[in-house]
Amino acid sequence: MENAYGTLSGPNITIRELQKDKISFILSDTDLSVANSLRRVMIAEVPTIAIDMVEIETNTTVLADEFIAHRLGMIPIESTDVERIKYTRDCTCSQYCSECSVELTLHVKCTDDRTRDVTSRELISSNPQFQPVLTDKNDSGILIVKLRKGHELSIKCIAKKGVAKEHAKWSPVSGVAFEYDPYNKLRHTHYWIEEDEKKEWPLSKNAALEAPPDPNAPFDYNAKPDRFYFSSETVGSLQPEEVVSMAMKTLLDKLAYVQMQLKEEVDMKKQDHTSWGY
């Protein structure tokens, strides 16, 4: 089914590894632009929930208000049901409401002589679906601040839905590894070498999945990249497979939106024509 435009069978995906917070897959039979779009959307446009506003009632800790607020923002929050939450900008409420936000409260006071660690475990969510991420039952949570005797922290956090385009705290992934053409058959890049390429440039792990090039084979200048090795680690707010599927959905939504606009435009143009009597 191959022709000059690649395969017609459409993109394929092969999952190589799937863990709690990690996914590796191969995206094949598609164009570089599609693969890169997926990467970009995974990083920056998959919506999650993160603390966006912090109302500080009492803070007698050693850390400044704004610094604690920043730390809270970076705490990943379980966002599997993120679809149920609206963006605040799309919501009808004036500031925030339960439809577009989750409220988390924290109130800790240290009365002990020992240093008291305040962790993300102590954030109490108004909505059980949206809890600070814990890897397992023994996870003590993410350290927010340490208290000494007499210190108190009492805060109300408003978590909102958002995307990493706006702020990095909404990113579901810590990074997306992306590679194609591990043998550099396409000669997109030029490896700078001092003496011996084999010695100085260790092959990437993905090279094992491709046949090594025949050194005598002529250079195929028509070849295009069509196998993309993805690997991504999440921050915990979403399952890795969710990130990928939600990224694809986001891409689809974007296209659907364009499609809808196109339709509207066409309809408008048609109306214009009819009004002119055609």
Binding site: S33, D181, T189, H190, Y191, W192
Partner: peptide
């Protein structure tokens, strides 16, 4: 390249 996803010409 972050924008196109293409491998940069040079390392």
């Amino acid at each position: 390249s972050g924008i196109t996803g293409e491998e940069l010409k040079m390392d």
